[in-house]
Computed example of a mutant assay.
Amino acid sequence: MARRKKVYEGRAKILYEGPEPGTLIQYFKDDAAVPAAPAPSSGVEGKGVLNNRLSEFFMSGLNAIGVPTHFIRRINMREQLVRMVEMIPLEVVVRNFAAGDISDRLGIPEGTPLPRPIVEYYYKDERLNLPLVSEEHIIAFNWANQQDLDDIVALALRVNDFLSGVMLGVGIRLADFRIEVGRIWEGDFMRLIVADEISPDSMRLWDLRAAELPDREGQTRDPGPLPDVYTELARRLGVMPSNVTHATPKPSLIN
């Protein structure tokens, strides 16, 4: 069997040339996706298998409701066939609740509901620690134009509606998440689609079921991080592979 040509390798995935023009094979590694880590990320056994299944679940669901993604089909336990896209060099973060970086920057207590979903852009360059950028920066440096940004916001908010509803249905609050967007051409027509992956690596999830249980003083607690996030999310959504039953640590992706 011919050796596949590697196109790109990141923290958590490897992209190989696909079997047909305009396609890629996306391989999910077990490495933890922790940007700006001072040392190489340690491996988490089985994480890639779970993220492959979970990303398939979310991407297929988005495709089914008319939100275009690069996902075509899952190939095996760790690989999926995706469309080749021209990636826009931005991480698009949607925030529903204050947490992490936005709490630090603006002094908003963590867990505060935001008056509406807030969309932020981070320039995708890990050498610069993914800096927060404005629409003015994006347009000035020609990473995207105003129409692209309008389309990105529309995509991000539709993804937010879908993910928030799915998570709420299994007792989870979607505090924030990030997506990446790419361009594809169909003849002379260009459109933007959701690319990369959607998995626990790119979400901040809080467990609403734990909040329903009283603490030692009999008081209900605030929602906290979902324990064993990869395995527990796969279990609640019904996509747990039968041969992956171990616990894995929570990810840390969104600032």
Rank of each mutant, 00 (worst) to 15 (best):
G43A: 14
F58Y: 03
F28E: 05
V44S: 12
L62W: 01
V44R: 11
S41P: 07
Y27W: 06
E20H: 13
A39E: 14
K6G: 04
K29D: 06
R11C: 12
L15C: 06
M77A: 15
V49S: 04
I72F: 01
S55N: 06
G22N: 05
Y27S: 01
I65R: 01
H70V: 01
Q26T: 14
I75D: 07
G66H: 07
G48N: 01
F58C: 04
T23F: 02
N51M: 09
P68Q: 10
G18F: 01
S55K: 02
P40R: 07
N52V: 05
L50V: 10
G22I: 06
A32C: 11
P40Y: 09
P35L: 08
L24Q: 12
V82W: 01
S42W: 14
V44D: 12
S55W: 02
R78A: 00
E17I: 12
P19Y: 12
E45P: 02
F57D: 02
M77H: 14
N51A: 12
T23E: 07
E9T: 10
F57E: 02
V7M: 11
D30M: 08
N51G: 03
G18M: 05
G43E: 15
A39D: 11
F71Q: 05
V85Q: 01
M84A: 14
Y27R: 06
K47I: 04
Y16F: 15
Y16V: 06
P35C: 08
R74Y: 10
K13R: 15
R83I: 00
G22D: 06
A36E: 13
R11K: 15
V44T: 14
E79V: 12
E20V: 12
D30R: 08
E17M: 13
I72D: 00
A32V: 09
R11F: 08
V44Q: 12
K47R: 15
I65G: 03
N63V: 02
L50N: 09
A32H: 13
